[in-house]
Write a protein that binds this DNA or RNA. Structure first.
Length: 684
DNA sequence: GAGCACTGC
């Protein structure tokens, strides 16, 4: 295909080039451990813990409209229960079973596994549907795995989900915003369609509150319960939990100390340690490499591995390979290993007791990342990673008395993040009064009101709270956040919809610029990036990258390597842009190019992102136009090293030691007066 | 001078 065969894997500077696309998703089973792999499929199915509960499941689903199933990952519930229902006739009369997963990876791998067990081709009786990848047959598919966003989209077209006899919500304990929206909507649908059944599956969540939420039995009436709980006991080994006597001053060093002790004194078994971010993980690994030598343990050599989402796929896969003989894997991970992935062979868990979460800051109307103590449920989930193959040990880096002070559950995402997209979605689904919507856990009213205020300012909803036509109703159709979709829809008026659709696609992918860690190449990468940089800011810079990428599409991969651009990110941006173009055509938004007139593009960006405006205060820091909060230019911005412009718009805020603006565009204050008039006349 | 995890007909 192209000329990259001269690159050697040993050349560290090219390591980034190996990435997810090289992993064959069909044959990649490293993520899922199956100890019965040598048995025939039917035999494997019968050995799963859930098999003993087959009759219970089928009995309870007849009797109750909603069933809450609690069971650990690995008990087989996500693959088996849909098949039990299918085999018991729940797909007669052309009805389907819908299984809703929080991640694309789960939806596709589970569907493929179930298709194998049903001995059918994927996309026939068993299929899946995720964004950019439809693999199901509307007439033949009976068991359909999908992501949460897909079901929300289906509800917009078919509000009572008439195609389905059963909906299964999986991994509900993660409590994503979409999970909560779906639960609220399904509660309504269940009232209207008595024959629809709902199964809610969860690993740790508090099943009692879920049961109460779905129970339609009215107080003081003799009517029967409509919801029930089934607990599936998986096979777990006992876990011994250790606490420290006194709080540790620095949990990174604490984790390192603890790992060294385990490695020196404990028998074989891999170690999994939780920290909050990649920076901490890299720091811990440096310390460990200094302190652990081949001689630290007579029998086992340490094999120290990082694990976090931004890590290249080739690096992530190392964590799943079986531990070589006479070695001990020591994995230092973010929260990704708490729920999203399962690593086999863990016997020791070290928990720093903290997690990094998105948190809505109402002063600046933005989500920020904060490090907070974990919840009890989260601590238990982390601990549970130790007892999968034999009795395990867990080390918590806080005193035992602190455990009781932890909150029981991590607040659902809805209660702690920006709600503007969720509110817009609900409005489109016919929920006019979002303040009275039955959320599984109502988010703070202030956050809902701020979301409504923002949507009104960008004219997605009118003063009475109804979706505007055509702007608001069209915005919902795009898989973009409200400010982004507003920008896109107004882009044809500014004569630059081609450029804006590119920029918005580029904003949705991360790590466009490759940053090698070693000296010479990091300077080269810096020089290459300069070639794309322009004084208008980061967004026009991204536009330049994409335009150059498309011009070189016949040798895209080698072009990316040459210019230190992330090929995978650009390919995904291309994919997202094509989806946007299709939607734009459908909603009659003409594709117009401004042929290099950057001012048009910047004015258009202002028309959508005006709520995120800042000005340069005489003290030398930027302040938000409404709240007057201090913000700083992120070092990754092209504007970091130039004279500070007077007015800026940002697309994203990162809260670390300061509040940093990312993806910045230079604007004029007169544009704000013109394009964000309604919003700013109150503020100024 | 810096980066939780997911996701979208």
């Amino acid at each position: 295909m192209n000329n990259i065969k001269f690159l050697k894997p040993v050349n560290e500077d090219c390591a980034w080039e190996v990435d997810r696309q090289d992993v064959d998703p069909v044959n990649n089973t490293t993520f899922i451990y199956n100890k019965n792999i040598s048995l025939p499929l039917d035999e494997q199915r019968k050995r799963l813990p859930v098999y003993k509960y087959k009759k219970h499941v089928l009995f309870l689903i007849e009797k109750f409209q909603t069933m809450i199933i609690a069971g650990d990952t690995g008990c087989g519930k996500s693959t088996q229960i849909p098949q039990y229902l299918f085999e018991a006739g729940w797909c007669q009369n052309n009805l389907k079973i819908g299984v809703v997963e929080p991640r694309r990876f789960c939806a596709t791998t589970l569907a493929r596994r179930v298709a194998d067990e049903q001995r059918c081709e994927i996309g026939t009786t068993v299929g899946y549907s995720i964004r950019f990848d439809n693999c199901h047959d509307p007439n033949a598919t009976k068991i359909k795995y999908m992501t949460e966003g897909i079901l929300v989209r289906e509800m917009m077209a078919d509000p009572l989900l008439c195609e389905y006899s059963v909906i299964i919500l999986d991994e509900v304990h993660e409590r994503n915003t979409l999970t909560d929206i779906l639960m609220g909507l399904l509660k309504k649908i269940l009232r209207k369609r008595k024959r629809l059944k709902l199964i809610v599956m969860s690993a740790t969540a508090d099943v009692v509150s879920l049961k109460n939420f779905f129970n339609n039995k009215r107080e003081n009436l003799k009517s029967e319960n409509t919801a029930t709980v089934l607990c599936i006991e998986g096979k777990v080994y006992p876990i011994m939990i250790h606490y420290v006597n006194d709080p540790v001053p620095d949990y990174v060093t604490g984790v390192v100390d603890c790992i060294c002790n385990i490695h020196k004194n404990e028998l074989d078994g891999d170690i999994l340690a939780f920290l909050t971010g990649s920076e901490e993980i890299d720091r811990a690994i440096l310390q460990l490499k200094e302190r652990l030598t081949e001689n630290s343990n007579k029998y086992l050599s340490p094999m120290i591995l990082p694990m976090y989402g931004a890590l290249p796929n080739s690096e992530q896969l190392k964590v799943f390979r079986p531990t070589p003989k006479n070695m001990r894997k020591i994995i230092i991970s973010t929260n990704i290993a708490e729920t999203s992935i399962t690593i086999f062979g863990i016997v020791y868990v070290v928990d720093c007791g903290f997690v990094k979460l998105r948190w809505f800051n109402s002063k600046i109307y933005a989500d920020t990342l904060v490090v907070v103590p974990v919840s009890q449920a989260s601590a238990e989930q982390r601990a549970g990673r130790a007892g999968r193959i034999k009795p395990g040990k867990v080390y918590r880096l806080y005193p035992e008395r602190e455990f009781e002070n932890l909150t029981l559950f991590t607040p659902p995402e809805m209660s702690r993040t920006d709600l503007s997209a969720a509110v817009l979605q609900l409005k489109a689904l016919g929920i006019d009064n979002v303040l009275r919507f039955t959320f599984p856990l109502p988010p703070p009213a202030e956050n809902l009101l701020l979301a409504l205020e923002l949507l009104n300012a960008i004219e997605a909803i009118d003063d009475k709270g109804y979706l505007t036509k055509p702007l608001g109703t069209t915005m919902v159709e795009f898989p973009l956040s409200p400010l982004h979709s507003k920008t896109l829809i107004s882009s044809s008026e500014f004569g630059c919809s081609d450029e804006i659709s590119t920029i918005l696609a580029m904003l949705q992918v991360d790590n466009v610029f490759v940053k090698p860690s070693s000296g010479a190449n990091s300077i080269k990468a810096r020089i290459e990036k300069r070639k794309f940089e322009v004084e208008e800011g980061d967004l026009i810079t991204l536009l330049n990258v994409f335009t150059a990428f498309e011009k070189n599409s016949n040798n895209a991969k080698s072009w990316c390597i040459q210019h230190f651009i992330n090929f995978k990110a650009l390919r995904r941006a291309h994919e997202i842009k094509s989806q946007m173009l299709k939607l734009m055509e459908r909603f009659n938004i003409p594709l117009i190019s401004c042929d290099g007139n950057a001012e048009n593009v910047c004015r258009c960006i202002t028309s959508g992102f005006f709520p995120n405006a800042v000005y340069l205060h005489y003290s030398g820091v930027y302040k938000t136009v409404r709240g007057g909060e201090d913000l700083y230019i992120h070092p990754s911005s092209v504007l970091y090293n130039v004279a500070q412009p007077q007015w800026l718009l940002y697309c994203e805020l990162i809260h670390t030691n300061k509040l940093y603006m990312r993806d910045i565009t230079v604007i004029k204050s007169s544009w704000l007066e013109e394009l964000g008039k309604k919003f700013y006349h109150k503020a100024t």
